[in-house]
Design a binder for these strands. Structure first.
Lengths: 159, 159
DNA sequence: AGCGATTAGATCGTGTGCGACTTAATTGGA
DNA sequence: TCCAATTAAGTCGCACACGATCTAATCGCT
């Protein structure tokens, strides 16, 4: 349809069109989701990354910072402040693991668990108000899962 | 394949699995691209958003801040500091439009234009080192273009 | 047992991002 | 003409996000 992979194939200082960049489509879609989620998450008092962190904890409670980072693809330098904010909101507790004092275990509080119900409604709400095509969304999601696997592999081999 | 749209279809406080979220796939892919581009862009002395801003300017020079924002999906509050940094690097000039003093016009300097050559090589370089499948990348890019159009529409109607 | 290497988080500095607000310039009616 | 409304950037505060670096704890090898 359009022409090239993540960028124009030209080797000379040629066109270099923004829409040819897969990375830009991803970048723009990320911002768009952020903007669409914001008003819905405001009602929960969460930011978008905080919401994703809570999703991980609702999946399985009592995780270490490293485990959360692995799941979300974030560094401890990003997660530590974020988790402290969730702690400040009274949604999680942060305690050193007595068996290994290097590790910090993150656990949901009752308040954190209670938020799961309202939180479950959010994606459906977004889907309803956005008028996105459900089938298309599922298809792109699965394609992106494959892309992410490839990108992760590329990261690994690159170091 | 997997089950639901941007989220699990369950209405009860059910599973809520991270991989079911399209928004998370997009979020993760964005970070992954950022990490892959970083070492390549370091050689140009640019960050990832700065690179995208330069791509827009290489497409067509002499744009207003608002035009750049429309193209990139960014607010002036994000662009102004970014553009000041590009100005500090000597890649662009920022001057008030004499015809309308509210407007600031962004123009490439010679140094900024000279960077286009090396910059064109970056995406191909990334593609080579990452080992991504070119056809798959093009397919996902086109699918995301459609998604972005839908997300943008959703944003518009939502206000 | 002892000590160098590794590991888990935390801290710091820089650079996005955005909403809310401000400032300055232009526009558009009465 | 004049002034209220609009518009374009910029400023500010907050929250990511990462690399580099630090600290404390644990591991592993002898």
């Amino acid at each position: 349809m359009t022409q090239a992979p993540d960028a124009p194939s030209s080797s000379a200082p040629g066109p270099l069109k923004l829409e040819d960049f897969l990375c830009f489509s991803v970048y723009a879609a990320g911002h768009a989701f952020n903007r669409l989620y914001r008003p819905l998450l405001d009602k929960l008092g969460l930011t978008y990354p905080q919401y994703l962190a809570m999703v991980v904890l609702w999946e399985a409670d009592d995780r270490t910072v490293g485990e959360l980072g692995g799941r979300l693809g974030l560094e401890s330098s990003t997660l530590t402040p974020l988790l402290k904010r969730l702690e400040g909101l009274g949604l999680v507790s942060r305690t050193r693991d007595p068996a290994d004092e290097r590790v910090v275990r993150i656990r949901l509080t009752d308040k954190g668990r209670a938020l799961k119900g309202p939180a479950c409604a959010v994606p459906a709400e977004l889907l309803a108000t956005s008028g996105l095509d459900v089938a298309a969304v599922a298809r792109i999601r699965d394609e992106l899962a494959g892309l992410n696997a490839a990108l992760t592999r590329a990261e690994q081999t690159g170091r």
